[in-house]
Design a protein around this nucleic acid. Sequence first.
RNA 1: GCCGAGGUGGCGGAAUGGUAUACGCGGUAGUCUCAAAAACUACUAGUCGCAAGGCUGUAAGGGUUCGACUCCCUUCCUCGGCACCA
Length: 825
Amino acid sequence: MKSKKTLPAKYDPTVLEEKWQKIWDENKTYHVDIENAKNPFYNLMMFPYPSAEGLHVGNMYAFTGTDIYGRFQRMQGKDVLEPIGLDGFGIHSENYAIKVGRTPKEHAAISEKNFYRQLHLIGNGFDWERKVETYDPKYYKWTQWLFIQLFNQGLAYRKKAPVNFCPKDLTVLADEQVIDGKCERCGTEVEKRNLEQWFFQITKYADRLLKNIEGLDWSDKVRIAQRNWIGKKEGINITYPIENAKETVTIFTTRPDTNFGATFIALAPENPLVAKITTAEHKKEVEEYLKAASQKSDIERQAEGREKTGVFTGAYAINHLTGYKMPIWVSDFVLMGFGTGALVGVPGHDKRDFEFATKFHLEIKRVVVGSDNDTSPITAIEQVQEDEGTMINSDFLNGMDIHKATEKIMDYIEEKGWGKRVATYHLRDWLISRQRYWGPPIPLINCPKCGWQPVPEKDLPVLLPDVENWKPTGTGESPLAQLTDWVKTTCPKCSGPAKRETDVSDTFLDSAWYFFRYTSTDIDSAPFDTKRVKKWLPVTMYIGGAEHSVLHLLYSRFVTMVLSDMKLIGFEEPFAKFRAHGLIIKDGAKMSKSKGNVVVPDAYIKKFGADTLRTYLMFLGPFSQGGDFSDSGIEGMHRFLKRVWFIAHEFSENPSEEALSEESLRIMHKAIKKATEEISNLRYNTAIAALMEWYNFVSNRSKTQGQPLTKQELETFIKILAPFAPHMTEEIWQSISGNDSQFRSLHKQSWPTFEAKYLAESSITVVVQVNGKVRDNMTIVAGKEQKQVEEQALALEKIKKYTEAKQVGKIIYVPNKLINIVVKE
RNA sequence: GCCGAGGUGGCGGAAUGGUAUACGCGGUAGUCUCAAAAACUACUAGUCGCAAGGCUGUAAGGGUUCGACUCCCUUCCUCGGCACCA
């Protein structure tokens, strides 16, 4: 009996895919029992910004790759939670709304519809009952709740700070959102402004955030990026007396070993000490410098390059070690936010210090000799020894390696009470407030009597009011500040008149906890159900773009730690396993609307079907690597799926033909093994290649030996193909499986397993090399003794040619694989 | 400058230290067709040779090894991130 009548002759993905998406929806095929699941597997993909252009193939690549992993796990018997949502609050969405002349709310409604439509089209196995939209009051109620928890833990504080201000977006930006001195969103040059802002004290968690990295199963490059971002540096704070003054100056250094060569001190312009120590005769000059420095943007500073500027305060600090009078300067290359906002200059052994000293004719002392043994005075920047060397001109440190000297001198300084070992971090506190409209209002009330008070939980959410003037004001205040009625409120503590905070919180707060919410979208009484969180979290597998290696992951980790400290959850780290996927680029550049190279999947889905596009995207290269999108190969993938479709009509159900040869079994089990391993490692391209090789074998066998595909082979084949091309494989599966009235999806069948006994070959081809060069090959019986293999190899005509009249030395035998005969010339 | 990833046919890419270029795209020739498309078959790193077969080849140069795309050193280039961080 051949060919099942139920499988249509023509492969028509448009009809097929719509049909199955509907059936899956109706049957809740991908819905998971959140309370009772036995083998919970939380398969999470980073939820997208619903940009106006809609989902592009870059998004689709990420989602499909994650979905394949989820489908694979589901077929391994896991109860897979695979939710999706939209990260729709924030500047990005608001700016787009401004551009198209809609309110952010209107825009959100439109893009939401479009995104969910597209997310259906690509055929992912989402649980559609667990959606999250960050701009939904039911969601941001709990974002506000989270803010209050941080506030109550003493982790939210307010301070006036020089902040990055984007004059185009009219808002404050976090340090992380400033790229090359420009706004991450719009590319406008960022200004420095002094504004009152809310901060989260993430630095308090720096050490834990750093330490926990060790135990995470994450892509290495992401772990390294996190480590670098936290940027812990061990060093020492040294306090120097100031000549003729009661003040002292404290600097941070990681290189106290060079302290015998210290010849000046430099302070950041913002350092409060500047005003206190500047002598009368230098006052005017210093004030002018401070004023100029405060007006300079980062871009202007960069434009000046490494050309150092600075001004002398007239004061001197005394170097304990040498008694040297170190002039105290002010320079904008010293950063207030790092260390103590002051440094000690060792121009002989630090390139920046050298430049500064050269420019202002300060003394340069050599205290380290490098491997070049140059002991001459340092007059050129090439002579500046930074990373290695031996101490000289440094009293009791002389002759020591610099690293040893560093430890020695730190002990000494601490002993003398001149300083103390400290660690500093690159990580800064999280600037959380935004003078914008499209975000969750910060749920705090300022009472003239009681100070800042959180909005009581029963009053949450603080709804974002619908207002006419929602566009940024540029006054340094949120548009919400104009709503006097809304701002006016009563103090939750004393019931006196009070004012609401009018800033909204940073979008990164929205996305720092959404993975908790997915488990509990049906619950209104709490941010999440603790039992469900215990069951499903930490997230089993998290997949997302490397561009979020630092910010989103770090903030999520921070929030999770805080919740853990509050005993609301029983773990510190939110993502057990994280893998970064590659980026799909187009013509060598990242897809972006401004470059006009955005590829939208819709047209390809219409022409070839989602199955083809999915499989094609995954075949492009390793998932972690991404690739350059070109449609040149997509026809080939479509061809492959069509071949599978046709061969599925011609399988044999004749029991006498069912018996597979040893070779056929071996090829099948090899394919299962290879595909399973490759999918586990997110190497989808080679998994697909393994399927193709198997297909080629069967197709060839069918033609040359007349043995068609067997039912067993077909079933196995479409199961492995199922995660990649879920629609067509489902159709084939339904046509070959029994006529059960109940719908049993292919995607809930168990994954094929391979058996080692079928993998072994009875006769094997062994490569024969002479001096490492392949000269011949031969077939041997598996497991043959080395001696016999050697004899067989040496007897080969082609090999004789190379061994004749020469002395055969060593013979290396790699069992069942290769034999290498070494001959001497 | 620092950190990270990478450099393999015409192209995307494949190779636990063991036959380099699997799989796919593209190309060439053929089958089918009135013709074309589709589909199918064969070939497809360079080079010498009628062939058998040889030689050369994984950015460049060196090293370790019986054997190196793979490990080590030096250099060059591309991409991504950070950047006056003491």
